[in-house]
Design a protein around this nucleic acid. Sequence first.
DNA 1: GTCTATAGACAGATAGAC
DNA 2: GTCTATCTGTCTATAGAC
Lengths: 185, 185
Amino acid sequence: METVERLIRSTQELLWERGYVGTSPKAIQIAADAGQGSMYHHFSGKAELAKAAIERSGAELRAAAEEQFTEGTAASRITAYLRRDREVLKGCRMGRLTSDPDVMADPVLRAPVDETFAWIRSRLAEIIAEGKKSGEYPKSLDAAKTAATIAAVLQGGYVLARAANSAEPFDLAIEGLIDLLGAVS
Amino acid sequence: METVERLIRSTQELLWERGYVGTSPKAIQIAADAGQGSMYHHFSGKAELAKAAIERSGAELRAAAEEQFTEGTAASRITAYLRRDREVLKGCRMGRLTSDPDVMADPVLRAPVDETFAWIRSRLAEIIAEGKKSGEYPKSLDAAKTAATIAAVLQGGYVLARAANSAEPFDLAIEGLIDLLGAVS
DNA sequence: GTCTATAGACAGATAGAC
DNA sequence: GTCTATCTGTCTATAGAC
């Protein structure tokens, strides 16, 4: 793999594990097996590298979600998305960045995070709207609200799981939501 | 206020804003208006100070939650808890610590985080169980699952709000959950 | 493109005076 | 209890040789 690619992937991994504040250029270089000069030749610094890594992660996240969003009824697509196999104890690569003050303070770094969640909520809302048309969900169900609730359960599930050092609370939260959604349909 | 108290409160605030990795002893000393020698006289270092701050925050969080948990029907107590005024864009003081690798890696620092969320889920489950007894909720509603879902929506709501730099997704997620809970009761 | 050298600032303490 | 001095290592680059 080429140097630039190794640098971006290593940065993605480190941002996931340790966040922006906790990730040093040195650590990235070691993980990517690239020298100092090499890194600074390809990127102006930590921020530019992080931008590339966050954008890449956002694209990957959307692609992974879209896989569940393509076939089946509205309810089955949402359930498939919720129950998809996830590295629960590692948390969400994108969600964890929201607690990184330096990422949130920099519009360039926050933008891809913002866009990713906006996209997910919007896609979920579309699917719920389809479900209302098909009669799977009642007309009274608010698509935007429900979409936000679904996205929040996933993000919050990660938080509860990491706090407990166990995937159990994540699974409980997901199944609790599926039960509630099943009750209205 | 006394020095020890100022140190703990300043650490609570800094952990909330910048996390453990992003908070330096120096920053704590400045915020607490305490000297280096003074800080190291009262605490062995950053970790011990963080332990005191996290435990304090956990106690405050439980006390704040218990306020909403005391009067009214089960459903009204849960709604009151969900709609309580919160500093949404600052995120959850306890939840943000779950993305701090050094906190999660140290059992002493993770314990109060774990206990706080375990307590909240357990209290919510108790209230839902009461609601089932009183007939507010159907017998088929799983208390542990639903409690996890409620806690997750709050934590995830913070994540979505910070990503969007707006309280709106938080409010949407909360209201979406309240609608779902209303539909089953 | 990649390497090594250098550098100022900060992190996270420790030591000893007062 | 609090203060100042000191210390080792790391952070985040920049500069210039190869």
